[in-house]
């Protein structure tokens, strides 16, 4: 390191010594301590897994907290708002209407007339029922064309 005298004369004047110290018996005890740690490493949970869990713990906690708050506040709010209740009722109404319509549409004309002819049958239609049926299944044009014959 002869060149050091040329490029850094002040530095080369300083006595080259190690200014740091270690606690007494540090190097004598080191391999025993390392051995203990290695034993833990061999038997215990891998350190990187612990690290991942430790790293993600706050994020998981926050996410769980938000999910809980959302569930506790949004869900009851959603259930008890008037709009939602109205929606539910509408849904029920339209469901029953659909069922009725499908029932009426399922009856073909022959069956319908057969039911009318069957005076002793258990099915009884009032005038209003008949009017409803005609309104549902026939247009005004059909009615006029049928009555015009």
């Amino acid at each position: 390191m002869i060149e050091l005298n040329k490029i850094a004369p002040e530095l080369s004047k300083i006595k080259k010594e190690n200014p740091f110290r270690v606690p007494e018996n540090y190097f004598e005890d080191f391999s025993a301590r390392l051995h203990e740690r290695l034993e833990v490493e061999k038997t215990g949970v891998p350190k990187y897994k612990n690290k991942v869990i430790q790293f993600l713990k706050p994020a998981i906690g926050l996410a769980a907290g938000f999910a809980l708050i959302f569930t506790l506040s949004y869900w009851p709010f959603r259930i008890f708002t008037p709009n939602e209740q109205a929606k539910n009722i509408t849904a029920v109404n339209s469901e029953s209407e659909m069922l009725f319509a499908s029932w009426v549409e399922a009856i073909d004309e022959n069956s319908f007339y057969a039911m009318l002819d069957n005076q002793n049958g258990s099915v009884y239609f009032t005038d209003d029922d008949l009017a409803d049926f005609v309104n549902t299944n026939s247009s005004e044009y059909d009615i006029y064309s049928e009555t015009g014959d």
Partner: peptide, 8 residues
Amino acid sequence: HFEGDEIQ
């Protein structure tokens, strides 16, 4: 555990 003098 630093035991150097001022220059160190």
